[in-house]
Every structure is written in structure tokens, then in C-alpha cells.
Design a protein around this nucleic acid. Structure first.
Lengths: 145, 145
DNA sequence: TTTACTTGTAACTTATTTAATTACTTGTAA
DNA sequence: TTACAAGTAATTAAATAAGTTACAAGTAAA
């Protein structure tokens, strides 16, 4: 199991929009960097737009960031692209046997534990901004390899 | 996306083995509580056995815990049932364009961030034992509903 | 008001994964 | 040797992911 790469692609898109802020970031341009189909990019752009992270307009080429990138965290992107539902990172088997003490109580016993684990993960995502990623790209790309 | 319920079922199995420690926990018995097929249980039992969490023997009915349940954490179960690979909770799109600074560096920039988020989640799982779950079941089942 | 270009979207395909099911073998103990 | 359980492989069905194609709808400039 793995969380959809929509999340990583969403981060890629926002990062590239920032680095290309003086140019036009069309779905084709972004798709060329991500190396996928423009329609895939447009679908994800739609999600980012709906979440208020970018501005895009039908008919007019290019996306712009809708917020300062210091205010966009990875958690914002993660939620925008809808890769994991609330409290559903872990799935719990349905219909356990209610005649057994374990079957009867396992779901509500486990759920808060799973939710806590998911929350810890999301908290880390919330501590990183797109600006951090932009800086990371910059650092790596300017090093003396 | 959701992490396979094999994990929740693994926890269910270990918990029930404990509560039924004086009885015989055969795959059929466990399957009846989980409400699934005995073959599914046997497959997961095989993983738990391989990880040294339970003792099962071909031909002889019933599984027993191989360790004290205070020493089995949810992380042990999670790793045993192989639901998430190391550093692969989040998938990253392959083959980004190396001619673009973002495409060229996005993977190694994002990977440590994703790994840190995954690690935080796993740390929470490591802080909960099967004994905690057993107690949780007990508390819920003995309350005055 | 055309023309050229882009976003928005729907339909379809392919591949992968999950979980359940069936059926069989191997092994154990009474 | 009989009965029963674990181990395991093959198959199915459902869900999801990602890519692809095609086209409608919107915008701006010629």
C-alpha cells in the first residue's frame, strides 16, 4: 500500500509554479516537468484550486499561487488532493462478530489509536511549507555535483 | 487509499488469542470472531508466526502468543503483516524531467520529509502494546451499557 | 467575429491490490 | 488409520490508480 502520488505531484506543481513565477505555468509546461499527461495535471490543479491554493482560470493559460508559499504547508496539499480521508489512513475490518467480546469492541478500541498515529503523521506534514521544499530544491541544485 | 485491514485483523487475532488463552484458538475460531474466511486468518497467522509473535504448528489446532503481550507493540504487528514498506508510505512519481531543476531534485527533496512523517506515525504505533488493546476491550465490554 | 489556445471534464483502458473463496497437501495426535 | 487442523496455491471480484483520448467551454488577441 502507498498513498497516491497525487500528493507528491501536487507538491511538485506548487514548487514549480513558484520557481517559474515570472513565466507561464500551463498544464502542458507542468506536465513536461512531472513527466505525465497534461490532463492529469489539470485534474490535480482543479483540486488545488478548489482548496484555494492556486489560481487558474478557464481559457487563460497558467496557474499562479493563491497564497504566500510560506503559508502553504504539505498538509494543505495533502488535504487538497484528497489522498487520505479523515481517520481512515488505516482500514478496519467491518462486521466483526458481535457475540465475541473482541469482535464487539475491537473497532472502537482501535480507532482512536489509529487516529492518533495518523494525526502524528499529519502534524509533521503541517510543519513543512512549500517554501521549505523550494529551498531544498535550490540547495540541491546549486551544490557542486 | 487505506492501509490494509490485515493490520487491524492481526491486532484482533493477537487480542483474541490472549483473551482465549485457556482455550484453543484455531483459525476457524478466530475467523468466526473476525468474521472472515479461515484461510485469510491462516495467511495472517503465518505472517505473525514468521515475525515471532505467535506459535502455531502444522496439524495441531490453535495458536499461542510467543511473547508476553506487554512486549508486543502495534508496530510489531504492523511490520509483521507487511502493510507498508520502509519509506514507502507515500509514493513519489517516477521519472520526473531531469532537465528541469524541480524534476531533477524533487524526489530526494521530498523523500526525507515523507520518511519523517511516516516515522512519526510508526512511533505512535510503537507506544501501544497488545496489552493496552486487551485492557481497552475489557474496559469497553464491562461498562454499564 | 473569427482564430488559436487553454482549462475543465468525462469516458475508457490498463495495471495493481485487496479480500474472499475453493481446494488441495502436509502434518499431528488420538 | 482416521479425523481434523495448518499451510498454501490458484482463482475470482471489487476497488483504486494513473494514463490516455477526446471534446466542450472559456478567453484573448488578431
Amino acid at each position: 500500500m502507498s498513498i497516491s502520488s497525487r500528493f507528491a505531484v501536487g507538491i511538485h506543481i506548487l514548487t514549480l509554479i513558484e520557481l517559474n513565477k515570472d513565466g507561464v505555468s500551463s498544464s502542458e509546461y507542468l506536465a513536461d516537468s512531472v513527466n505525465t499527461n497534461p490532463a492529469v495535471i489539470r485534474k490535480i490543479m482543479g483540486m488545488l484550486k478548489k482548496a484555494g491554493l492556486i489560481e487558474v482560470h478557464p481559457g487563460v493559460a497558467g496557474a499562479k499561487s493563491a497564497r504566500n508559499i510560506t503559508d502553504i504547508t504539505l498538509l494543505d496539499v495533502y488535504k487538497a488532493v484528497n489522498v487520505v480521508q479523515d481517520k481512515e489512513l488505516f482500514s478496519i475490518h467491518g462486521n466483526p462478530n458481535p457475540e465475541c467480546p473482541v469482535g464487539r469492541n475491537i473497532q472502537e478500541t482501535i480507532l482512536p489509536l489509529f487516529s492518533a498515529a495518523q494525526a502524528a503523521m499529519e502534524k509533521v506534514l503541517d510543519s513543512v511549507t512549500i517554501e521549505d521544499v523550494v529551498k531544498g530544491i535550490h540547495d540541491k541544485d546549486s551544490c557542486t555535483n
